[in-house]
């Protein structure tokens, strides 16, 4: 099956996921078009992280299907590397490699996984570090950077693989309030450039500002979704209302 840009770049259909007897996703469906930014919000434990991890096969699924650019992700035959090249992921805890400098962190995957020439990779890595506004920090180790700076290096590291889709799982949740903004600005830049982004976030103001579409999950199902204005102002489901009244 060939994929073209008029079809969803990521298509999640009736996905079910259990950890043992605990059913975490009970049939979730979302379609994301190329260049779209969607935010997934919901109470703790509702399965947001699990869903996002299923998209790049860090978790397996028990039912339904997930396709990226028309290719089934949970297919035994799948070339994992093909998926990795298309989907980048940024984690709450940054997960930078502490024994490598910022520049080396960004360069490592293109060099070792894509086996691209070093000069090209370095040029691109320096440009990415500049893009996340960390010029001058190329040779710093993660331990010498603030949380917000580390998270921006992590974003640059994912971008170095030239993904078509970026996944962000509560990437500002571990940060100080002052540094949250610098990371959000970086993501906003990306969205403005047309990167397809799937975000799990607790930053409602940010979600309202950047998202094309918002999904509210609770207990493994999508309760409500819509464009930011209608979602935030005209939520109809009592669970959504209760959640919004707590966080807004």
């Amino acid at each position: 099956m060939s994929w073209s840009e008029d079809k969803p770049i990521v298509s999640i259909k009736d996905v079910k996921k259990s950890f043992g007897s605990l059913e975490v996703l009970k049939g979730v469906s979302i379609d994301i078009m190329k260049g779209e930014v969607i935010c997934i919000i919901g109470p703790s434990g509702s399965g947001k992280s699990t869903l996002i991890r299923c998209i790049n096969a860090l978790n397996d699924i028990q039912g339904g299907s997930i396709t990226v650019e028309g290719r089934e992700v949970h297919d035994e035959e799948l070339d994992k590397l093909e998926l990795r090249k298309k989907v980048g992921m940024v984690f709450q805890q940054y997960n930078l490699f502490p024994h490598k400098t910022a520049l080396q962190n960004v360069m490592m995957a293109p060099l070792k996984v894509l086996k691209e020439p070093k000069a090209d990779v370095e040029k691109r890595a320096r440009a990415l570090i500049k893009k996340v506004r960390l010029e001058g920090k190329e040779n710093s180790y993660p331990g010498e950077l603030s949380g917000g700076q580390q998270q921006r290096v992590a974003i640059a590291r994912s971008l170095a693989m030239r993904p078509d889709v970026m996944l962000f799982d509560e990437v500002t949740a571990a940060l100080d309030p002052e540094t949250v903004k610098e990371v959000l600005v970086t993501i906003k830049d990306l969205a403005a450039e047309g990167m397809t982004c799937i975000l799990v976030t607790h930053e409602m103001g940010f979600a309202r500002e950047v998202a094309d579409h918002i999904y509210f999950t609770d207990k493994g199902v999508i309760v409500e979704h819509g464009a930011p204005e209608e979602f935030f102002d005209k939520a109809s489901d009592p669970r959504t209302k209760e959640f919004l009244s707590q966080v807004l």
């Binding site: 790049n56 990795r84 992921m89 984690f91 490699f97 995957a109 070792k112 994912s158 693989m161």
Partner: peptide, 11 residues
């Protein structure tokens, strides 16, 4: 997280 981030980068 070290394993997961390396995995998600294609290592």
């Amino acid at each position: 997280g070290q394993w997961e981030s390396a995995d998600s980068l294609g290592f």
